[in-house]
Write a protein that binds this DNA or RNA. Structure first.
Lengths: 154, 154
DNA sequence: TACTGATAGTCAGCATACTGAGCAATATCA
DNA sequence: TGATATTGCTCAGTATGCTGACTATCAGTA
């Protein structure tokens, strides 16, 4: 029988498991307490000031029910703010705070270090290849998850 | 600034996200209710009758605190049994039930189909390359997560 | 304008994953 | 043998990620 550990689905789970562990370790070493998910959300808020939650979720492929809790924690840590939108009373506009900006700036080396560690078993070319193939497989499967990546709409 | 969506960590998360969605969809279409994690645990119990929980966790790289709940659900569904070990009174021996065996057999086509769908954007060679590179990166990072893969000890 | 459908956000519930702590039992070694 | 360390398992707490349902609001149209 084929080894279950060799199936693409299992490799996907393992790779993600290691990626999260490495990220958290590097970030903690740098003296911060931020998850990969929180980091991506914060960086995307900074790059798109005033965006609403659904747009944010689409830009980083999070489920809209997940993003609520993530933003809750960013707000609670004082890194982001959630305001009512003036144009659409259903929507909340998101902004990064000065503290959030400071954190992003200081945390960047740790985040980049994590990415290097994640690929440390591969040569530079192999790392490039892996990322290219992952991007291609992901693009083909984008709409298969409930939270697909959405190019900036609007 | 570099696009966050292009970082290896983000690609890892996305690939895993799609892998789980595809697995669940295929398995549900086949008329079953089993998660990727439950499937891997059940298949490993079948292949290693009487193994204990820590060994099972090591064979599929799950955390020991996660495996408890997974087995709870397999037992509750009648697919596996948990017995006290006679050799070590701390340990629990795991066995697959007839129902579990039947389920595994019938679910296999759906599981294989899921793996194909996950790689559907890639050529056969690209799929092979992706898996080879993932295996290599994972092997190099194995000990960086709290739940590393352990070759059958004993 | 009134109706209908879509959209933004939240919530409850469930299933991974992990941290850290704790209990019971086993192993090791002075 | 007796103290110490280790191991197998569980639990409480936290953070994703999802399903499905619900409210409030908006948009399009008859």
């Amino acid at each position: 029988m084929k080894d279950n550990n060799d199936m693409p689905g299992h490799l996907a789970r393992r790779f993600q498991q290691i990626a999260v562990a490495v990220f958290l370790a590097e970030v903690e070493d740098a003296g911060f307490d931020l998850t990969p998910v929180q980091y991506a959300a914060l960086a995307t808020i900074k790059a798109n000031p005033g965006l609403d939650q659904v747009t944010l979720a689409g830009l980083i492929a999070y489920d809209r029910t997940t993003i609520t809790g993530v933003i809750d924690r960013l707000v609670q840590k004082g890194l982001a703010e959630r305001r009512a939108s003036s144009r659409d009373r259903r929507a909340r506009e998101l902004e990064i705070t000065d503290e959030g900006r400071r954190t992003l700036r200081k945390i960047t080396p740790a985040v980049e270090s994590a990415q290097r560690i994640l690929l440390r078993g591969l040569s530079a070319k192999e790392g490039e290849d892996l990322m290219r193939l992952l991007r291609k497989a992901i693009a083909a499967g984008n709409d298969l998850s409930r939270a697909p990546l959405r190019e900036t709409p609007v």
